[in-house]
């Protein structure tokens, strides 16, 4: 599993990552079980999971590329394309819908000037709608890069956008 043998591209796990993967694999009856955690690592390291990354992962875990492709495309949290620095995921399922989620999405899109699923031209924000986030008691729920925010108001969104834009401008 040496780094050289895997891939000469930029899409390559660091030696620390490879060591981490080795311990991870040992926790399961078979290396294939480590696929999802390893995909998360790739997404963290490279921002998204490109075809090159998928090939590299197949090699690291001793899987066929198709086995990796099947998993990457089945699960919605694995991204094959880059997204904005801040991924805003709004739950619009029942609990949140009943508490204003659709209006919140409309507000976000208006403020950012994009449609659902799009990224702002400055590459800062992507807005998506997601299925029930499992926090309906705090509806409406927005995840910002996987951190939960509950009972979210339009004001909160505005503040967030302003803050991140200011940071981005620095």
């Amino acid at each position: 599993m040496s780094a050289e043998s895997i891939c000469s591209d930029a899409v390559r796990f660091s030696d620390e990552r490879l060591a981490e993967i080795k311990t991870l694999v040992a926790r399961y009856p078979s290396a294939q079980s480590a696929l999802m955690p390893v995909l998360y690592m790739a997404q963290e390291d490279f921002g998204y999971i490109s075809m090159d990354a998928q090939k590299m992962i197949a090699e690291v875990l001793g899987l066929r590329l198709m086995q990796v492709r099947e998993v990457v495309t089945f699960y919605t949290m694995f991204r094959e394309q880059p997204c904005g620095t801040y991924l805003l995921e709004v739950c619009t399922n029942a609990g949140c819908m009943l508490n204003g989620a659709n209006e919140l999405v409309a507000h976000m899109c208006d403020s950012l000037g994009i449609n659902v699923g799009e990224t702002t031209p400055d590459g800062l924000f992507t807005v998506t709608e997601v299925e029930c986030a499992g926090a309906c008691g705090g509806a409406p729920v927005v995840q910002v890069n996987n951190a939960y925010h509950e009972k979210v108001t339009p004001e909160f969104i505005d503040a967030l956008i302003t803050e991140k834009r200011a940071e981005g401008a620095e």
Partner: peptide
């Protein structure tokens, strides 16, 4: 050979090769 697999899910699910 296993080069054929199932990509995506729901009614976007497709049978595909590499």
């Amino acid at each position: 050979t296993g080069d054929i697999g199932i990509l995506n899910r729901s009614d976007h699910m497709t049978i595909n090769g590499i």
